[in-house]
């Protein structure tokens, strides 16, 4: 019994940590736009040789 209680508490803490991480992610706006970031990560900067910065 006591082992189970220990496991439940440990499991609950881990689960709660993930829930807290999710709440933080939502509150910092990470779910506001789920379309753009997955595309942005695939885009590369133009080659330095080509790019002209004026």
């Amino acid at each position: 019994m006591s082992v189970i209680v220990l496991l439940i508490v440990a499991g609950g803490v881990v689960a709660a940590a993930f829930l807290a991480a999710f709440v933080w992610a939502v509150r910092t706006g990470q779910f506001d736009d789920t379309v753009t970031p997955p595309i942005r990560i695939l885009l590369e900067d133009p080659h330095p040789k080509d790019a002209v910065n004026d």
Binding site: A15, F18, L19, F22, V23, V26, R27, G29, F31, D32
Partner: peptide, 14 residues
């Protein structure tokens, strides 16, 4: 409202 909905889904899924 959108963020609230995500939180609601999060808690329900949890």
């Amino acid at each position: 409202a959108r963020r609230h909905l995500y939180l609601r889904i999060g808690f329900a899924g949890f």
